[in-house]
């Protein structure tokens, strides 16, 4: 086997990979298929255009009817827009955590992974040489793909967890499965992570690191808002990419930005 000699040889090998030939005959064949497909789609479009007007009229009429019905039953009669219900849980959790951490805490809300657990961690103080629960020091919110009651820890298991970790479950329940995303919330000094780089998301400085580990790589983000730090650990897998993790953080920052404006 012939070894590569240096870095430039490595680069040249890459470049040679881009010299594969697209055979002229095959190229012509693909071209004529494209042209045929274009003509076909043009004809098809002409036919569908006639029906489009009819369908769009019917669609608009249905939309007005259904929309009107929804507006009357859900918004006017209930007196509240439906969106309020969606964020009811988030507001409740924010209220609890703000009270516990004695700061204004905002909880990121994921559209696909619901926040199912919220815990508060406490410092340890010694009374008569016995370690006991001290002041709240941080909170963690856990987001899951989906959870059913079978995975929920029992009351005894939860108590054991709380005692062992000097913490308290203040929202939802504990589950035996690992979370898709966790968000640690705390006041005080900035967190550190090896190889973290500073990136800008929606005008905000965010510390970011890509952690390679088994069984899943993880995206790590940390940002500060009103003296409260939010540290995101987002599990990555084939369907949940680094971009998805970034979007989650981005959405949260967008919300924080509206708070600044207001």
């Amino acid at each position: 086997m012939k070894p590569y000699n240096d870095q430039s040889e490595f680069d040249r090998t890459f470049q040679r990979l881009d010299t594969t030939k697209f055979n002229e005959n095959e190229k012509k064949e693909v071209f004529s298929t494209i042209m045929h497909s274009l003509d076909h789609s043009k004809r098809k479009r002409r036919h569908t255009n006639i029906f489009n007007h009819v369908f769009s009229t019917v669609f608009v009429a249905l939309f007005v009817l259904i929309g009107g019905y929804f507006l009357v039953t859900e918004v006017i009669f209930d007196g509240q827009p439906n969106q309020g219900a969606v964020y009811e849980e988030r507001d409740e959790l924010e209220q609890i955590l703000s009270q516990e951490l004695n700061s204004n805490v905002y909880v990121p809300w994921h559209e696909d992974f619901p926040a199912k657990t919220g815990i508060v961690k406490y410092s340890t103080v010694f009374q008569d040489n016995t370690p006991t629960k001290g002041e709240p020091i941080s909170a963690t919110v856990y987001y899951f793909v989906e959870q059913n009651d079978d995975n929920q820890l029992t009351k005894e298991e939860t108590l054991h967890f709380e005692e062992r970790n000097r913490s308290e479950v203040v929202f939802g329940s504990l589950y035996s499965e690992s979370a898709m995303v966790t968000v640690d919330i705390f006041t005080g000094s900035a967190p550190s992570m090896e190889d973290a780089v500073e990136i800008n998301i929606e005008g905000k400085e965010v510390l970011y690191s890509y952690i390679e580990r088994e069984p899943n790589d993880t995206a790590w983000f940390a940002l500060e808002f009103n003296d409260v730090w939010y540290v995101f650990l987002h599990k990555l897998e084939e369907v949940t990419t680094e971009d998805d993790a970034m979007n989650f953080v981005e959405n949260f920052i967008q919300r924080l930005n509206t708070l600044v404006i207001n």
């Binding site: 086997m1 012939k2 040679r16 990979l17 010299t19 594969t20």
Partner: peptide, 14 residues
Amino acid sequence: EKIMELGENEEQLY
């Protein structure tokens, strides 16, 4: 096949 035709190094890299 098209990449194998390019040579051993290219094939390995690919």
